[in-house]
Design a protein around this nucleic acid. Structure first.
Lengths: 137, 137
DNA sequence: ATTGACATTTGCCAAATGGCGAATTACAAT
DNA sequence: ATTGTAATTCGCCATTTGGCAAATGTCAAT
């Protein structure tokens, strides 16, 4: 990525690094990313991958999600929601159901969801006559 | 990276895509990622960038952070997965499964467990009636 | 079997990421 | 100023990502 139009990310990262304070080389050795690369990221000549972003997050005092949001990797409203009942489902998964299901392989779990969706569409009525005529007999 | 086969991510993505259901081309056009690339990701020949992961999240019914966790981009709340593909325990309740199921009333959740146990017992006793050819025509 | 319509995979390529070492720039303390 | 040393930037290159188009696979309907 060349001269990112709106790369405050680099400035933010540099500011944070300076204020910690760390040099590029120190951050590089802590985060295991080359200092030259970090330098290019700070001045907007390169864009950090998720892996690099993740590695420099803690040394700079960022949360990973926070930094991912700054980088535009995560949508603003889609942070990790630790708050209960925040636009999520008001219903919840029955604990015993969760426990039983958790003992099955993930493929089985997903297959179960597949069966559920079939049952729901059947219950809703035969809704796909226009496209895919079911060989009923 | 060549055929990083130990990565479940591809499997998970494919399972989810199939169960939605979507074809590679449909997902490609919805998510604006080429179908060939998506195919390679699913079979582990390529590793998705954050940008791609972000684009395919919603069409597949994942939260972005959920998917980032699966890809190893975000650490799970406890434990550290430094390499992508690790840190995914196969014997846990899949987050997307939990989410979908949590939207159903508890009676439905329990009914699903009932169906699961019936299916398992059928699968166990499948050889008791080996003489039952299904008339499939 | 043949056709046709999709779906998936493969070959090839452009662009981007990221490391290493050399060059350059601060910035001390003589 | 000049020397020394640490910090930053630059040049070059390997590796990876991701797209396009062609090849291949799949499957239902002739």
């Amino acid at each position: 990525m060349v001269t990112n139009n709106e790369s405050n990310l680099g400035r933010i990262l540099k500011q944070q690094r300076i204020s910690v304070p760390l040099t590029l080389q120190e951050l590089a050795s802590i985060a295991r990313v080359s200092s030259s690369h970090l330098g290019r990221i700070e001045r907007g000549e390169r864009f950090p991958s998720a892996r690099v972003l993740r590695r420099i997050a803690k040394p700079l005092g960022f949360n990973e999600d926070e930094l991912f949001m700054l980088a535009g990797f995560l949508s603003p409203q889609d942070g990790v929601a630790d708050e209960p009942g925040k636009g999520y489902n008001q219903r919840q998964l029955d604990p015993s159901v969760a426990k039983i299901l958790a003992e099955e392989p993930v493929e089985v779990q997903r297959a179960i969801i597949g069966i559920l969706s079939i049952l729901k569409s059947v219950a809703r009525g035969i809704d796909k006559e226009k496209e895919e005529p079911q060989p009923l007999k």
